[in-house]
Simulated assay, not measured.
Amino acid sequence: MTAPHWLALYAGLLLAWIGVWAMSSPGEFATILRDLCMTPAAQAGLPGLLAMWLIMSSAMMLPTAIPAFATHDQIADAQGVGGGAWLVGGYAVVWVGFSGIAALTQMAAARVGIADAVWLAPALLIAAGAYQFSALKEACLSKCRQPLTYFMQHWEEGPWRMGLRLGATCLGCCWALMALGLIGGTMSLGFMALATVLMTLEKLTRGGFVPSAIGLGCLAGAGFLIGGYL
Rank of each mutant, 00 (worst) to 15 (best):
A76T: 09
A51H: 05
T64P: 01
F29Y: 12
A92M: 14
A44R: 13
L36A: 11
Y91M: 09
D35H: 13
S57P: 06
A59K: 04
A70D: 04
F29P: 00
W21N: 10
L46G: 09
P67Y: 06
L50N: 00
L50R: 05
G84A: 12
A70N: 06
Y91E: 11
T31N: 12
A30K: 10
A85Y: 02
M23Y: 03
P26Q: 02
M52E: 11
R34G: 04
I32R: 14
L62Q: 15
G19C: 00
T64G: 02
F29Q: 08
I32S: 15
I75R: 15
R34L: 03
C37I: 04
T39F: 08
Y91A: 06
F69H: 13
L62G: 13
I75E: 09
F69Y: 15
Q43C: 09
L54W: 07
A51S: 11
L62T: 07
V81R: 00
T71M: 05
V88Y: 01
T39Q: 15
M52A: 11
L87M: 07
P47H: 10
A76H: 02
V88T: 02
G82N: 07
A51F: 11
G80F: 08
L50Q: 00
P67C: 12
G48D: 04
A30E: 08
G45A: 00
L46F: 15
W21P: 01
S25F: 15
A42H: 06
I18S: 13
M38W: 15
W21Q: 09
F69K: 01
L46P: 08
H72Y: 03
G45K: 04
A22P: 14
M38G: 13
C37M: 08
I32D: 15
D35V: 09
L36I: 09
L87K: 14
T71E: 03
A76V: 10
P40I: 12
S25R: 11
M60K: 12
T39L: 12
M61K: 01
P26M: 03
L50M: 06
Q79F: 00
F69D: 14
G90W: 05
A42L: 05
